[in-house]
Amino acid sequence: MILLASRYLIWVFALFMLMSWDQATAEELSLKEIATGVYVHQGVHQLPNQHNRGEIANIGFIIGEHCIAVIDSGGSPYQGFALKQQIGKHSQIPICYVINTHVHPDHIYGNLAFKAVGVSFVGHHKLTQAMALRAPFYREKAHSELGFALSPEHFVPPDQPVKDTLELDLGGRTLRVTAHPTAHTDNDLSIFDTQTETLWLGDLLFMGHVPVVDGSLNGWLSEIEKLRKIGAKQVVPGHGPVVAAWPLALMGEENYLKRLQTEIRAAIKAGKTIEQAMNEIGQSMRPDWQLFDDFHKRNIATAFAELEWEDD
């Protein structure tokens, strides 16, 4: 009897904690309507840590007449719930889609909050594999660096994998979802809202936060060439302001990546080592970017290892 009661109390307590906690975050999740029915929450230029719980990316949603599409679910399970709660405050239209722009934790850890009958998860056709390969590593990192536990269930893979393009009808507006070849990662998706001509690029576009190469430097630069031709009015970057002018917004990132490419190629040609390249290349770009010291050398290492094979 005592056992039962204490069990019951634990549940009540847990529920209470969850509710009070949910409310606290829901109030913190600010949203901006950047175009009719297009809402974006702005992330912060910080490394993921226990304080920000990895909630650092731009996330949001688009409201149609019959359906809402969430674009990136947040950097923690909490942020996923907070986003869901905010959506409920804005609209009673059902959430039909959760689109993940790529596998990185700050874009997918809120997925589970949205899992329900009638909600379809949309992602690059390589997203399932990327989630599967990264899950053990990511779970350990979440535990040690973000301060929460993740179960395999938090990695909700897409049930609508996108290989080329996919059109999502939200009622009165159509989202064109495009799967890209390896660029920022090997599973990048972009979303174009035809009604407001808003292009949502996820981490194909970094502004302010130094770009992070986790796929292919060459691939990313050739995607930028193609992206530039999209006739959008405005763009939502994965990290940076909630909205920016298109295609001007590409300039900073493109300059950074091009300079990496040019200088790493020159270093390889000159017979320099990866250590020399990491220490010497692009240091003058430090004032242009936040988190430069956290990612720049790593970008060089990743790109160097790619470019030393590019002639083959």
Binding site: A130, F137, K141, T182, G215, G271, D312
Partner: peptide
């Protein structure tokens, strides 16, 4: 450092597998 052995396989695994066994001297 942490997680290097369980870290995700280089994202261009397909490209890496396609040129497996290639070698270069410099």
């Amino acid at each position: 450092a942490s997680g290097g052995c369980s870290a995700p396989i280089g994202t261009d695994l397909e490209a890496a597998k396609a040129r497996m066994g290639k070698m270069k001297f410099r």
